[in-house]
Design a binder for these strands. Structure first.
Lengths: 155, 155
DNA sequence: CTACATGCAAATCCTTTGCATCCAC
DNA sequence: GTGGATGCAAAGGATTTGCATGTAG
């Protein structure tokens, strides 16, 4: 778990300026779960009487991304989401039925990486991936059986 | 390889109307490689003196998707891309350096699917995936070594 | 003091929608 | 003929950008 202090230290060590909007976005990213959009961050801060311009949020997020502190993922549903890069890397299972997002360990991708390197001479950089499917709860809820699942759209 | 005639037959069998814009988009999708955007399809057709409204292209693509004839993928770079659903399913390796897109067989994902089912009780629907990394040509070109690759953004 | 970050507004890009007209069946 | 598809224009949402101002260092 990366804390606000961790990030601030890294930022300062690089000689970057620390401003209120930057502090606020960093704090929001640490306080909230992963997969925040620019909007959700802005709203979270607005709830604390910190009102930032949307463009500012985007600029701060871009800046944090350039510094390698946050990662972008396109979950394909509601725009681009951001989250603090944590060690170790992980990935996400997005349920097509209920929208629930579950984290999975990076190790699930090792076999795939080996395969791509060996058979395709491709050096994968799979930092942060989203896989779609049906989560255990929706499967057992019976609202969606295997047949229905098959007819769901790809995303 | 799915041909224009194949698609037309399927469309007619379902009692759907065949119009010039629909014909044109189907033709373009068959003629072009995978991963076309609404724009690239429109431009391709414009080059043949077939000028379609952008909204029409979107509507035809949506329609083809609803019929299960084309699939959408968000390659994360330049908006949503479309391609004719072919059997068997396949996935894509997108080079972060040169942008080249290479197809990979669906079988590379089997170990991952097994893993997700067994360890996460998650029923994956990974129909069409894009993986980012460095392709063999860019690796051997030496323009990018492993170190540089590490500093590349996730996407 | 100076470079850089911010707020504001406008622009841009991609995609969708409403509506009158047109055409495939 | 009629329902559904199209063109056109306008709306929509997410993200970016230009510029004057403000502020961290």
């Amino acid at each position: 778990m990366v804390t606000k202090a961790d990030i601030l230290e890294r930022v300062k060590r690089r000689g970057e300026r620390v401003t209120l909007p930057r502090l606020a976005v960093i704090e929001a990213l640490c306080a909230l779960n992963s997969h925040q959009t620019a909007q959700s961050i802005q709203q979270h801060l607005a709830g604390q009487q910190i009102d930032l311009e949307e463009s500012t949020v985007y600029r701060v997020l871009q800046w944090l991304k350039d510094l390698g502190i946050v990662a972008q993922t396109d979950l394909g549903q509601s725009g681009i989401t951001y989250e603090v890069v944590s060690t170790p890397p992980h990935h996400h299972l997005v349920c097509l039925v209920c929208g629930q997002i579950q984290d999975v360990d990076d190790s699930v991708l090792e076999p795939l990486r080996r395969h791509l390197r060996a058979d395709y001479a491709f050096e994968p950089r799979i930092d942060h991936m989203a896989f779609f499917g049906i989560c255990c709860r929706c499967r057992s809820a019976g609202s969606v059986d295997r047949e229905d699942a098959e007819s769901l759209p790809p995303r």
